[in-house]
Design a protein around this nucleic acid. Structure first.
Lengths: 333, 333
DNA sequence: CATAAAGACGACAACGTTGTCATCTCATCC
DNA sequence: GGATGAGATGACAACGTTGTCGTCTTTATG
């Protein structure tokens, strides 16, 4: 069906190797010979087989594997975009898969990607245990983790958001506006970023001599509905919080709904920016970060590893930025 | 570096072929032999090389190429998600690239994907001319287009949204609420979906005996700012429209901004749903569609082609749904 | 004009795997 | 006990390409 170099060679009346030379733009082919070969290529519709090329070359497949939770989620799709940009510059293809936060699937994906001999791996880890990766790493497959670190035993690069720092800046912003009773909605404590953001919340309070009141902290709400319920409950306390810090954008939206429903002016600052945050009835003050930048940095690090650079494992912390829009600046009531 | 089957064979004291049999779970290996082989595999950290496998098998690389405009755009990332779901079911990997609406890059991507011998192609086309694809199609690479059809000459499947039908339903909804002066913001007329939606707008008006007033139609605004300006200008007319139909979500947001700025109760229905459309100060009535479904349908079609099914080229039209939220139900003033 | 040097081109092996076929070892049966 | 056959295993080629090296042709040089 598909013509090979051999077919082209026959058609052009030259040897296989000469076709290879022409296809790869090597020197040492007479112009008229090259022309005959190119004609044959055009006539037959020949396309060089990169599979065979990668096998023969022995080394690079010019591809990298990307394992994220879910491309449909803007956070991950922006990471993917950043990765793609860098891959493009290095003439690499990205082979991606969604783990859906399922460790078994993550493991299966990584294994399959290694079998495909990707030159490197970019992973947002779900699994707790990545020891299965150690042989791959030793075998020379470079890997960079994003958003969450793997466990200690894995010596690989990580690119993280400054979760604690960002949360601290949010809570300090609320404190600066006079708040003392500040609630915290954090996601499930099994999640690294949720823990880190919670830590930032604690640090900010302590730094300003405000004791952490555990009755104002809700660990666990995981979706909009859960956050809405938790916030409603907090606002109905005898001594309700005057401000809320939310650990991610789903929680922010849930909290916002509950706040709007009660009609109070409870201040709100959320981690994660989101589209239209500035177009809402109350524009939302957020801790923004840059997932595409995370993808880019991770991919750049990976490319350096793939090029054989041998640094100690890096831990990159990406800065966040507080974007002031209104919801976080109302004074305590 | 990486051990091969030969290394495993040596280590286990068996032949290459026996290792192959064990790795592929073929019958006809004594349990104790298989165990020795598996031990060797574990000790050496052997991973089957899918590159060599694909080459030798001659046929399938178990991968498909996806060319979209930009993964960071939710519309495309949802398509990617749908594709991924189907690919997963068929044990395929997705190799994707972003064309950024650049025909040259699209062509380069498709060419590279063919060189990698993907088993099939899923493309949201940017280029006007896809004749370069014809040889690939003839050579047996299946292809399915999404969102926009390729030109006539290409005999390939297409999965489209019912753009005209959706637009018609939006405009008829406005007409049903008493509107007669309905503006239309459409994107650049070079864009297939923009033309189709514009066509639906025209059809709805004509079907109700309302002449199309070209002074209420703006073709060209392409981003939020452009739509905002165009809408502001429309609303400042001596005899302004009482309702606006917008051809995509960027335009909807721009129109919304302009409407909010003037403080009028101009009705608004937009094509494309978007996150938080229900959380805005004015919840937006939209024509929703399902990009992930488009990805799924296209991928399913592609898999059928890849399995050798030989249907005439299909043209799938996916339904839209009008979601009523408030912005489209205010009466004319 | 003879010869060296450079240039053009081809033969062959190898990358790591799997399909085909051959060989070898036993247990089984008459 | 020798033929029979099933089961286990191995040798070898091939997939399509590129690196190495050898051969042949052409050109430059004395």
């Amino acid at each position: 069906m598909r013509p090979t170099m051999r077919d082209v060679a026959r058609h052009a009346g030259v040897s296989l190797k000469t076709v290879s030379r022409v296809v790869n733009g090597e020197v040492g082919v007479r112009p008229d010979t090259a022309e005959r070969v190119n004609d044959a290529i055009a006539v037959l519709g020949f396309r060089r087989n990169d599979i065979a090329r990668a096998l023969r070359g022995g080394k690079r497949t010019r591809s990298l594997g990307l394992v994220i939770k879910d491309v449909a989620n803007p956070f991950y799709s922006q990471i993917a975009r950043g990765v793609e940009e860098v891959a493009r510059l290095h003439d690499l293809f990205v082979i991606s898969g969604c783990s859906d936060e399922d460790p078994a699937r993550e493991r299966h994906l990584i294994r399959s990607l290694c079998e495909r001999r990707v030159d490197g791996l970019l992973v947002v880890p779900s699994a707790a245990d990545h020891s299965y990766l150690i042989p791959e790493l030793n075998m020379g497959t470079a890997a960079v983790f994003m958003d969450r670190p793997p466990e200690e035993a894995i010596r690989a690069d990580v690119v993280l958001i400054d979760n604690a720092g960002g949360a601290r800046s949010a809570v300090e912003h609320l404190i600066a506006h006079g708040h003392r009773r500040i609630a915290c909605l954090a996601d499930l404590p099994g999640i690294f970023t949720a823990r880190e953001r919670r830590r930032g919340y604690d640090e900010a309070l302590r730094a300003h001599g405000i004791p952490v009141d555990e009755s104002l902290v809700r660990l666990g709400p995981h979706d909009v509905a859960g956050a809405e319920a938790a916030t409603a409950e907090l606002l109905s306390l005898g001594d309700p919080p005057t401000a809320v810090f939310t650990g991610n954008n789903r929680l922010t939206i849930g909290a916002l709904r509950a706040i709007q429903a009660t009609g109070t002016t409870t201040a709100l600052v959320g981690f994660d920016d989101f589209e239209l945050a500035d177009m809402l009835a109350t524009p939302i003050t957020v801790v923004a970060h840059y997932p595409a930048e995370m993808g880019r940095r991770a991919a750049e690090l990976l490319c350096r590893r793939m090029d054989g650079e041998d640094l100690p494992p890096q831990r990159v912390l990406l800065p966040t930025r507080l974007i002031i829009r209104g919801s976080g600046e109302s004074p305590p009531f």
